[in-house]
């Protein structure tokens, strides 16, 4: 498995786990009427931990394969990134329009912000997931 593929796996899993935890709490607030108290703190703790873990795991990856880490992305890797972004962008658009559509629902600013954040997270998961699929397909 190449350095870039491992990197995509790390980011994909971290986003899935950390934002999975966050949106489970958000869903409890929206659908089960739980209190939203402490959710902002949870958000910043999770994002901080995610960034920290990203850095640590990528450093470990770079130590494990230093030459690959130093090598710039080649044309196939850049193409894979572009293709994955092309797939993820419509997902982001649909999510953004769905969030705008919430104006017609009895939803507040907080719910709309969560909807936008959810769209961004799903689009990122699609982007890194697509990268992994393309890397696997070429392996």
């Amino acid at each position: 498995m190449s350095f870039r593929e491992k990197s995509a796996w790390i980011t994909f899993v971290l986003i899935l786990v950390f934002f999975g935890v966050y949106f489970t709490r958000v869903a409890a607030v929206i659908f089960a009427g739980h209190s939203a108290r402490g959710l902002s703190t949870l958000f910043f703790v999770l994002v901080g931990s995610l960034i920290g873990l990203e850095v640590v795991l990528h450093l470990a990856l770079a130590v494990q394969s230093p030459r690959e880490a130093r090598t710039p992305k080649d044309e196939r890797e850049r193409l894979i990134e572009l293709r994955a972004t092309r797939i993820a962008f419509p997902v982001l658009l649909v999510g953004a329009f769905a969030a705008i559509g919430m104006l017609h629902l009895p939803a507040g600013r907080w719910e709309m912000a969560q909807a936008v954040l959810f769209a961004i997270v799903v689009a990122e998961l699609v982007r890194f997931g697509a990268q992994i699929v393309y890397f696997r397909r070429d392996a």
Binding site: F3, E68, D74, E75, R76, E77, F135, R137, A139
Partner: peptide, 22 residues
């Protein structure tokens, strides 16, 4: 040639067509 080993492998297996430059 300035690409990764995985790219050479993909080219060799016919899974990726390289640019004219490569």
């Amino acid at each position: 040639i300035g690409v990764t080993r995985q790219t050479v492998n993909a080219i060799e297996l016919g899974k990726y067509s390289p640019s004219l430059e490569v």
